[in-house]
Structure formats: C-alpha cells, structure tokens
C-alpha cells in the first residue's frame, strides 16, 4: 500500500473536480419541481412541529402559510419559476431568539424530509448550501 501515490492521486482528483462540478440538471428539477418541493415542505413542516427541541417556536405560527412561503422560497432559490412573497429572513426571525442549536435542529428536520422524499444526496447538499448563508440572518435575532 503506497500512501504517497494515494496522496498524489487524491490531489489530482481534488483539483480536477473543481473544474467539473457544474451540475447538468437544475436543482429545481432534482427537487421534483413545484410538486416535489410542495411535498418536501409538507414533510418539513410536520418534522418541525413534531421536533420537541424546536416545536415551541411554531406554537403561534400559521403552518399553512409557513408551508406556502417555504415552497415559494425553495422554488425561487432552486431556479424555479416562483417569486418569494414573504418577509425577508431578518424581519421574519427577529424576536424569536433562535439559537444555533435550533437552527441545526431545523437543518436536521429538512434533511429527514429530503431523505423521506427520496432526494439524492447531491441535490440535498446543493439546497442546504443555498440556505446556509441565511444562518446569520436567522440565528440570535
């Protein structure tokens, strides 16, 4: 077992892959378009309100509207033909005192929903990467 050769091979693989990481299919299609995103968010919202770590944040929430806003937002982010009509992330989360752990619990709820929806790991990662920049707009507001 020659680990030096393995290192060289891995470096080449790493460099090459940076130039070849553009996706052939749009994320919107990978998420199952509007119908798939709608189903995903139904599961997502159910997971959120059933998660004892964060369900208290949703006691006063209009869940049907949350579902609708998430679907518009994910659809637009994924490159679909939607326009998000809700409040910006800072406005909609100010005063909720969402902690880093709460945010992580939300990520886990979304991951479970994506697993249940049969979304491939690559598409899951691309959606999460689009949502990650909202962390600082949501946490500790």
């Amino acid at each position: 077992m020659n680990i030096k050769a393995l290192f060289s091979a891995a470096s080449v693989f790493f460099l090459l892959s940076f130039s070849a990481s553009t996706s052939a299919q749009s994320l919107y299609q990978d998420l199952g378009e509007l119908e798939g995103i709608d189903q995903l968010n139904e599961r997502f919202v159910i997971n959120l309100v059933e998660d004892r770590r964060i369900s208290h944040h949703f006691e006063q929430t209009d869940l049907a509207r949350l579902h609708q806003m998430l679907t518009e937002q994910f659809c637009e982010l994924a490159g679909g033909p939607c326009v998000y009509s809700g409040d910006d992330m800072v406005t909609s989360h100010t005063g909720l005192n969402i902690t880093r752990s709460d945010f992580n619990a939300l990520v886990e709820a979304l991951q479970l929903a994506m697993d249940d929806q049969g979304i491939a790991i690559g598409a899951q990662n691309r959606l999460l990467a689009l949502l990650a920049p909202m962390h600082h707009e949501v946490v500790n507001r």
Partner: peptide, 10 residues
C-alpha cells in the same frame, strides 16, 4: 467545510 463542494459532496 463546504456543504456542496466538488461532486455536490460536503
């Protein structure tokens, strides 16, 4: 960590 790096892997 990069959530969606090369090959859409983390």
């Amino acid at each position: 960590a990069w959530l969606a790096g090369p090959f859409d892997r983390t």
